[in-house]
Design a binder for these strands. Structure first.
Lengths: 190, 190
DNA sequence: TCCGCGCATTGACTTAAGTCAATGGAGATC
DNA sequence: GATCTCCATTGACTTAAGTCAATGCGCGGA
């Protein structure tokens, strides 16, 4: 299981094996059941997460009471960017496990300690953040420019496993369409 | 003009007046004409920017040759997040002035020097990045969840000045709709 | 094992946005 | 000042997605 972590550390840092082991040994890994909530919209997050196995859905309830799914995190993805800019630092999103999942959990109040002990971690965090940011920007651009049908095709091409792992109506919400439309589009392009 | 900068520094750092002046004096401010290009899609950006006055449009040409506008930057906004994650660090977007503009230009190869001299700047940069990230995420979520008409209403509410400053067909592209639809929606909700 | 609920699918209909085409106005150029 | 070009608007028509409603399958709980 932890080999995923080693792979990730190697990709993003130039740490030696001993340092990597030191980090991995300090790390808390938790197993969460399907339906488990990492934290809720309005909560102040106490930890950041890195997915070793499973799938986490990010969603918000908007002003009209509708549930909007804004992301799915799967293996090797980090949930680490929150609303630092909001004065109360509360989350605008709820994060919930779509499947039984195994996550690295990093307590935010130990963040500084970890960075002091392992300076390269801070660099890695920055890089992950930049990568995530670029990705979200690119996805946003693609979303703006494409029709619902094109969006479904893109998602099928880029993350086909989501269609097996995630309920259709949540996928539809993530794609900005109704479940009925998603069903019809799938039939049309199937 | 530079009072905008002071305001911004005060908001984001706890620097004393002397330090602020030191920073502001080191800074390069440039006046650019409407139509001037900061850098093009495919270029490796040499600088980051902060808008004191004017308006910059961010766009990309997609695979089908269509121009997709992905953002408009106006007063007090920073253009500072690039594709650090791409191996060649080239930009996926072109940035062009929609109006005559006045920008702070920060050479990226002097970035480290500036951070060494003024450590708080690095903190400020991180914060700006986090804020931008949260904002893009929130905008994305809102975009997913709303119809073209609702998106127009939201933009009218949040950034009404764009409708005066920016050509309609570019706004339409930014909103993910055709210029014809934008025209009709405006008439409908006007 | 059986029952019940949630959810995916399908159908009929409505509606809003896309497409194609024409018009007309404002600003730029000479 | 006249012309040209670009672009916003408007119209007619097409199409795809939304809405409302019914059905039926599958999964989980008792």
């Amino acid at each position: 299981m932890k080999d995923i972590l080693y792979k990730y550390l190697s990709r993003w840092t130039s740490l030696g094996e001993e340092d990597q082991q030191a980090i991995v040994n300090e790390i808390r890994v938790e197993k969460l059941d399907k339906g488990a909530v990492l934290f809720k919209q309005g909560d102040v997050p106490a930890a950041c997460y890195f997915i070793l196995e499973g799938c986490v859905r990010q969603y918000a309830i908007d002003e009209d009471g509708r549930e909007v799914t804004t992301n799915f995190y799967t293996e090797e993805q980090a949930i680490a960017i929150f609303n630092h800019h909001k004065s109360d630092k509360s989350s605008e999103y709820t994060f919930v496990c779509v499947e039984d999942s195994v996550l690295v959990v990093g307590d935010l109040d130990q963040e500084k300690d970890m960075y002091d002990k392992h300076p390269q971690l801070e660099f890695m965090t920055r890089r992950m953040m930049e990568e995530n940011f670029s990705k979200v920007q690119a996805e946003f651009a693609a979303f703006i420019a494409s029709s619902p049908e094109a969006r479904v095709k893109t998602l099928l091409a880029n993350r086909p496993s989501l269609f097996d792992r995630v309920p259709q109506h949540q996928l539809a919400s993530y794609l900005g369409i109704t479940p009925e439309s998603l069903s019809r589009i799938k039939k049309r392009i199937g």
